[in-house]
């Protein structure tokens, strides 16, 4: 299987206690590893933004299509500009 660079996905989601299990469960069920997760509420806190650091392998397009089907996922795109976010928090996690 082709495996190359890491890529960041940015998800706009509804902010409620179950949304993380929907998103992470989707990756877990398909044995697709998530390398890093960042999540914060945005605006009036009815929504959150999730950044997912994942490997850009052959299955990623299918994963994105599956994520789009989740009712709580309002928007999803590849966020090339968000790699820095993970570099910024790294010192707090080591």
């Amino acid at each position: 299987m082709r495996q190359s660079a890491e890529v960041v996905l940015r998800l706009q989601v509804r902010n409620h206690p179950g949304v993380m299990s929907h998103v992470c469960g989707l990756f877990a069920r398909r044995a697709f590893n998530v390398e890093g997760i960042l999540c914060l509420p945005v605006g009036d806190a009815t929504r959150s933004t999730i950044l997912l650091l994942v490997h850009d392998d052959d299955r990623l397009d299918q994963m994105i299509l599956q994520l789009r089907k989740l009712e709580d996922v309002l928007e999803i795109n590849r966020a090339h500009d968000a790699r820095e976010a993970f570099a910024t928090v790294r010192p707090f996690l080591q």
């Binding site: 206690p17 179950g18 299990s21 929907h22 469960g25 069920r29 089907k69 989740l70 009712e71 709580d72």
Partner: peptide, 14 residues
Amino acid sequence: TYGLTVPITKHNFL
């Protein structure tokens, strides 16, 4: 129930 039904529903609500 919410957690159990995440992977087998189109969507679920608590």
